[in-house]
Nucleic acid binder design. Sequence first.
DNA 1: CTGAAAGCGCTTACAG
DNA 2: CTGAAAGCGCTTACAG
Lengths: 345, 345
Amino acid sequence: MEKTGRTSVDGRVEKRSTIGDVARRAGVSAATVSRVVNGVYDKASAKTVARVQAAVDDLKYRPGSIGRALRKQESRLVPFLVPDVSNAFYSAIAVSVEAALRDREYAMILCNTAEDPVRQDAYLTEMSSHLVPGIAMMGAVESPGLRAMVEGGETLVFVNRRSPYPGAQPFVGIDNFNAGRDVAHYMADHGLDRCGMICGPEASAASRDRRAGYLSGLAERQISPEDAHLVKGGLTVEDGYRSATELFSRNPQPRAVFCVNDLVAYGARKRCSELRLDVPGDVVLFGIDDNPLNEWVAPWLSTVHVPADAIGEAVGRILVEIWDGRTMSDIPDAILPYRMVLRGE
Amino acid sequence: MEKTGRTSVDGRVEKRSTIGDVARRAGVSAATVSRVVNGVYDKASAKTVARVQAAVDDLKYRPGSIGRALRKQESRLVPFLVPDVSNAFYSAIAVSVEAALRDREYAMILCNTAEDPVRQDAYLTEMSSHLVPGIAMMGAVESPGLRAMVEGGETLVFVNRRSPYPGAQPFVGIDNFNAGRDVAHYMADHGLDRCGMICGPEASAASRDRRAGYLSGLAERQISPEDAHLVKGGLTVEDGYRSATELFSRNPQPRAVFCVNDLVAYGARKRCSELRLDVPGDVVLFGIDDNPLNEWVAPWLSTVHVPADAIGEAVGRILVEIWDGRTMSDIPDAILPYRMVLRGE
DNA sequence: CTGAAAGCGCTTACAG
DNA sequence: CTGAAAGCGCTTACAG
């Protein structure tokens, strides 16, 4: 069994060189090597720096993260918990978070919670054993472990869905209420007032806000909650299919449906197909997220575009602010601009 | 700035307890705690075990992975390099690899290479600093760092696409040649002999095998390579669109197109839409992978289903065999069964 | 400007 | 059956 390490020309695996190897080679102490490698202000003399650099290059030395983490009691690994990696919208965000962290010399470790509180807590405790400096969470659900961390003031950034518990931890996402409201206004203003909504889970603040915005937007156009035709649902494509089945069995059948996210809209679309309803001819479907695949496989879907790239950047920025000592409660939420995307007209 | 740790009722963050805390509490040495916690055979007396267990429970002690990794010169973090996390097929595999590793008490760290040799090498060296016990790679590309690792006999498992360099490292995937051949046979046997193929990158063994199988399958049905209508392409949806544009500008227009993967087929489908070609009425599209979203958004796509779940399990099993001391060259490739999925008929 | 020393949390021969 | 000691690779007061 071989360990991961550098390889010499003859194909044998070399041991990683350590700070001690470099020190010996440069004829200085490990402390000095450490300072030079980390660019500590307390500058070493030019000639020492040069000697150390040469030794580093010769030995292809790269500091080991384990030793540093143990000493500093903090690693540079940042877990990102996501509800469903196979949702392309979520994974687009994961990619952007990864890039933002990488720019700042942190590595992201992706954890798939499947919206399961047990898995969420398992990750939370597991990650603590890696001495992580903070955690980013998308689609957080209620769980005892999360509650404790929020109350304990741990370094946490919530993405897309706010914390289920009150706390100082910042949030990055869009204004879900206004997004829902905009969709409702659009419907009302374009003769789509025979409308309905497939809602998300009650436990999700984002879902609740989208629904509240939708209701509020309709009310502003004199459409009553009874005519808003809310149907309960979840966040997966199967949930969307089920909820659509229910919604379309009602009378009158809606002319437009606001789905809590794009995946749910995919599910609703399948039900429309089965019912021989053309989208958007017979039924206009709205989603939220703007899955990157929409352009290719869902040219019939209008949706609210959420800026995945900007999210990662905001998460990276906020984490660094916290690590730099800024108090979490002083950090304003990053509410990013969304825009409606109309398709299939 | 707070560190990640457990939290007491009053909401303050506690320091993680260490093996020393447990030892003190149980009135034994740290060595004993270590043995008990790791269930070392060299059994401790029943009463010692009980005392240690009690202390562990009292303090909610969980061994820190950093200390262990430093001492053993090996962490339990396994990087999984993927070409494109936002491809739902790849992320389905990532999820299954994660589950398989988790079952074996390893954590997966997901790395998005974007098929970029530079990023691939950056990850490879970065990961080495975490003293990882091995690496799983999907869609590996040629890069100097990878070459060195393969030649050095590092613990590597290739998924879906074989190593670009000769070496002992095992492979997990399907028989791409036969998959391509089956598609060709299907076309020839169903009156779809006016066919074409959108190929993948030359650098990918999987792509080459699919193409070779397709050509071979056609040849077996007396269709010559000139009538196979090969078009060069890549692996993204945009690539598929471009290649389809080229393919459909030729004469005669194909009645069936074999796309190197599902994403490429998505791109081809868009081009068909623009040309007012019905799929599968006017053009039958075949892919490979069977993206989990197909059922919902691509009910028109026939494809070769690759068993994502079985892949993760095989990767986990093989890595453990290697860690248990089995020589890599003794481990046979895991060639998993695929099946054709016909849709939209 | 630089080094010796301590210590982060673990595991593992070694000795008893 | 158990403990003392060493050591994995780093960083950081502290002293000079």
